[in-house]
Amino acid sequence: MAVFTPVALDEVNAWLCQHYNLGTATDIKGISSGIENSNFFLTTNKDGQTTEYVLTLFERLSREQLPYYLELMGHLAQKGIPVPAPARDKTEQIIGILNGKPATIVSKLSGSSRLSPNADHCAAVGAMLAKMHLAGQDFKLSQPNLRSLNWWQATIPLVKQHLNAAQNSLIDSELADQTAFFASKDYQALPAGPSHCDLFRDNVLFDSSSGKDQLGGFFDFYFAGNDKWLFDVAVTVNDWCIDLGTGVLDQARYDGLVNAYQSVRPFEKTEIASWNLMLRAAALRFWVSRLWDYYLPREAEMLTPHDPKHFERILIQRRDVISCISSV
């Protein structure tokens, strides 16, 4: 989340007055984390009651693409999964136009991110991720993960000029392996459905108001898509269960997340067999996207691109060290 398109308080108030029944905006504050959309904490007052929301202006996604993400969040929220619920306007729409960009308002979850998680945090995330996958099975809309194989194949040629010989060899080799993997019968047989596809530490909140860390919810679904559930787990493991300096998996956090996930939805045999290739696929996806953001940046207020070398290290680790999972 960043700020590419500024929004002033009087601008958002005029928009709210015309389209919503949420009251008057009393404060709007840009959110600095993330790199895709313009995001703001929005505070409103209606009949003396203060409510906090998140306002998002979409910079890359079209208005036609947005219903999938927003309706998925609404579907999951109705199923009891702790995710932001989109606010509907006076005509029951969940997408509007603000300052020339598609825009939406969603509820603000409680809590804060745990950027140094322990095994218990990872277990909570793993169990809720499995519940989210099952809750999304009857979601009516379908859209592929837009940052999957086709996007890697189109984007890698754009960044290769910025890589050295060893990096080019690595990225070419991994793309060839993943192209073959995606074409395989094993890959086609993997269970799939709506997936978050970006469940990093900063996209999950924990609430400690009760005196104990409790999962507050998952947010930022704007990379979501119908994909293999195993890919969603691999993306999550590659962030939550590693040493950030080296990319090496932390066994206690890894076991906590994977075992908790399987306590809700046990892995199938094809998933167990495909696990290491999927960990590599998840690493490649984010190496490519970080290379793209780093070398082909867009101008934005408060934007700091992530270091692409982080996921290069993770990919090398996953290629060098075979990680296993077992059925429960």
Score class of each variant (00 low, 15 high):
residue 37 N to D: 15
residue 39 N to A: 05
residue 39 N to T: 07
residue 40 F to P: 01
residue 40 F to C: 09
residue 40 F to N: 06
residue 40 F to I: 11
residue 41 F to H: 10
residue 42 L to K: 04
residue 42 L to P: 01
residue 44 T to P: 09
residue 44 T to L: 09
residue 45 N to T: 15
residue 45 N to H: 09
residue 45 N to L: 15
residue 45 N to M: 13
residue 45 N to A: 12
residue 46 K to C: 10
residue 46 K to V: 11
residue 47 D to W: 12
residue 47 D to R: 15
residue 51 T to Y: 07
residue 51 T to M: 10
residue 52 E to I: 00
residue 53 Y to S: 00
residue 56 T to Y: 04
residue 56 T to H: 02
residue 56 T to K: 04
residue 57 L to Y: 00
residue 58 F to E: 01
residue 58 F to M: 03
residue 59 E to K: 05
residue 59 E to N: 10
residue 60 R to A: 14
residue 61 L to R: 06
residue 63 R to Y: 06
residue 65 Q to R: 06
residue 66 L to P: 02
residue 67 P to M: 07
residue 67 P to E: 03
residue 67 P to I: 06
residue 68 Y to H: 02
residue 70 L to Y: 11
residue 70 L to T: 10
residue 70 L to W: 10
residue 71 E to S: 11
residue 71 E to W: 09
residue 71 E to G: 02
residue 71 E to Q: 15
residue 72 L to H: 03
residue 73 M to C: 14
residue 73 M to T: 12
residue 76 L to A: 04
residue 76 L to P: 01
residue 77 A to I: 07
residue 77 A to F: 08
residue 78 Q to P: 00
residue 79 K to D: 07
residue 80 G to A: 05
residue 80 G to R: 05
residue 80 G to I: 08
residue 83 V to M: 12
residue 84 P to Q: 03
residue 84 P to T: 02
residue 85 A to H: 13
residue 85 A to Y: 12
residue 85 A to I: 08
residue 86 P to H: 03
residue 86 P to N: 04
residue 87 A to C: 12
residue 90 K to H: 12
residue 90 K to T: 11
residue 92 E to T: 13
residue 92 E to Q: 15
residue 94 I to V: 12
residue 94 I to M: 07
residue 97 I to D: 11
residue 97 I to S: 08
residue 98 L to M: 10
residue 99 N to W: 08
residue 99 N to P: 03
residue 99 N to Q: 14
residue 101 K to V: 09
residue 102 P to G: 05
residue 103 A to N: 05
residue 103 A to D: 07
residue 104 T to G: 08
residue 108 K to N: 08
residue 111 G to T: 11
residue 111 G to E: 10
residue 112 S to A: 13
residue 113 S to K: 09
residue 114 R to V: 14
residue 115 L to A: 00
residue 115 L to K: 06
residue 116 S to R: 12
residue 117 P to S: 07
residue 118 N to G: 11
residue 119 A to G: 00
residue 122 C to S: 11
residue 123 A to N: 00
residue 124 A to Q: 14
residue 124 A to W: 00
residue 124 A to Y: 02
residue 125 V to L: 03
residue 125 V to N: 01
residue 126 G to Y: 06
residue 126 G to V: 08
residue 127 A to S: 13
residue 128 M to Y: 12
residue 128 M to F: 10
residue 128 M to N: 13
residue 129 L to R: 02
residue 129 L to S: 02
residue 130 A to N: 05
residue 131 K to Q: 13
residue 131 K to S: 10
residue 131 K to M: 09
residue 131 K to V: 01
residue 133 H to T: 03
residue 135 A to S: 12
residue 135 A to V: 06
residue 137 Q to D: 04
residue 137 Q to C: 00
residue 138 D to I: 04
